[in-house]
Amino acid sequence: MLIVRRKPGESLVIGDGVEVVILECGAGKRVKLGIIGPPEVNVYRKELAITQRQNRLAAADVTDAQRLAPVLSRFGRGCSRREIDMVRPIRVGSAKKY
């Protein structure tokens, strides 16, 4: 990892067209950055990239998770019947393809 020290108002250039400007730092350990770059370069928080990856895993196959209900009983506390009824799920009998 390249480590660079910068002050507010200073900036970094990445590649040909991306500039990262340090706008503020300090309060609550947060850093405020400004990013200037071409529109075709996507900029997003890493948490979003992680969630994209997790969602692709989650969508891969639900059959293992479907068998999870007995395991969940060990969590004990859980949610109330009411909490699920509030979202008005469509009730089905038994799923196919186990």
């Binding site: 209900a69 859980g78 799920p89 009730r91 038994s94 799923a95």
Partner: peptide, 8 residues
């Protein structure tokens, strides 16, 4: 929801 798999 499948009732037998609640709370999934």
């Amino acid at each position: 929801e499948e009732p037998q798999r609640r709370p999934l």
